[in-house]
Simulated scan of single mutants.
Amino acid sequence: MNITTEKDSLYTGLENMQISELLQHINAEDKTVPLAVEKALPQIEALAKAVTDKMRNGGRLFYIGAGTSGRLGVVDASECPPTFGVPFDWVVGIIAGGDGAIRKAVEFAEDDAEQAWKDLQQFNINSGDVVVGIAASGTTPYVVGGLKAANENNLITGCIVCNSGSPVAAAAKYPVEVVTGPEFVTGSTRMKAGTAQKLVLNMLSTSVMIQLGRVKGNKMVDMQLSNNKLVDRGTRMVMKETGLDEATAAELLKKHGSVRKAVDSLNN
């Protein structure tokens, strides 16, 4: 396969550049990422539909990955409960090497092709669930092995990779290939590839949650009120939906615990 994420940077002599020049070149490369994502929209749509169908029937979404890719999956999964008010186990991020690898790299954890399925089994994974492998290179053994095992156990599988024709994509029933090309710093896939993966994860989880009814209009009506900023946001949302004054809206929100429940209480 042609691993473009490992090709030499289009720029050289980076250590001799001024900060302004470095930033301009990085920005120029970053501008190419959304265009690469756009080309993969049909693939993203197919995966999102498959995930939505499974989750409507009580299934869960699992992300598996190593290094930066694994961390991005963990981030997206961890943001779903506060954003959409869903249970913490609806979307689960698993990183090679365990949660400690979120902060500190675990050597060779990504090279174990059997460990991902073992990690997934800790969650009593079953054929109602979906497993999405995240790997910039598309070659990570941890992800390839996890997807193959998931397929053997009749699960829906997907992936997010940044090279074409990869083993990870071949193992996924719903592959998403966002070809981002050489990195500004050769091989540093936390940059363009990581940005592309984050964009796709945003699109996937957000579109799925909207389809599952976790957004009303354009508002996060089920968000967790976990800090003052979110309570203030929720109060404004209740005010807009109901026409109540701020004090009454705040009291109603406090009583019911979510924007949706507060607004619904007036309609029942």
Rank of each mutant, 00 (worst) to 15 (best):
G146S: 14
A149P: 00
C162A: 09
T140Y: 01
A172Y: 03
I160N: 04
A170K: 15
A135K: 05
S166P: 10
T180W: 09
I134M: 08
A171S: 15
K173D: 14
A169Q: 08
G181H: 11
T157R: 04
T139V: 14
A169I: 13
N154R: 12
Y174I: 05
N126T: 15
G146E: 11
N151M: 08
C162W: 08
G128C: 04
S137W: 04
S137P: 07
V179E: 14
E183F: 14
V143K: 01
P141D: 10
V144H: 01
G138Y: 03
Y174T: 06
G158I: 07
A149L: 01
N126Q: 11
N126V: 07
I134N: 03
I156Y: 03
C159P: 06
G128H: 12
G138L: 07
N153C: 12
V143E: 02
Y142C: 09
E152W: 11
G138R: 01
P182N: 10
V143G: 00
V131T: 07
A172D: 07
V161W: 01
A150Q: 00
A169P: 05
K173S: 13
V130A: 12
L155H: 09
T139F: 12
N126P: 04
L155A: 06
V161I: 08
Y174M: 02
V130H: 08
G138E: 01
S164N: 11
V143S: 00
N151H: 03
V179D: 13
K148S: 02
V161Q: 01
A135N: 02
P182C: 13
S127K: 14
N151E: 04
A171G: 07
T180M: 13
A136E: 05
L155N: 06
N154K: 12
A150F: 00
L155K: 02
I160K: 04
S166F: 11
Y142A: 09
I156Q: 04
L155D: 02
A149V: 02
N154W: 11
A136N: 07
A170F: 08
D129C: 06
E152L: 13
A136K: 05
N154S: 15
V161Y: 06
A171C: 10
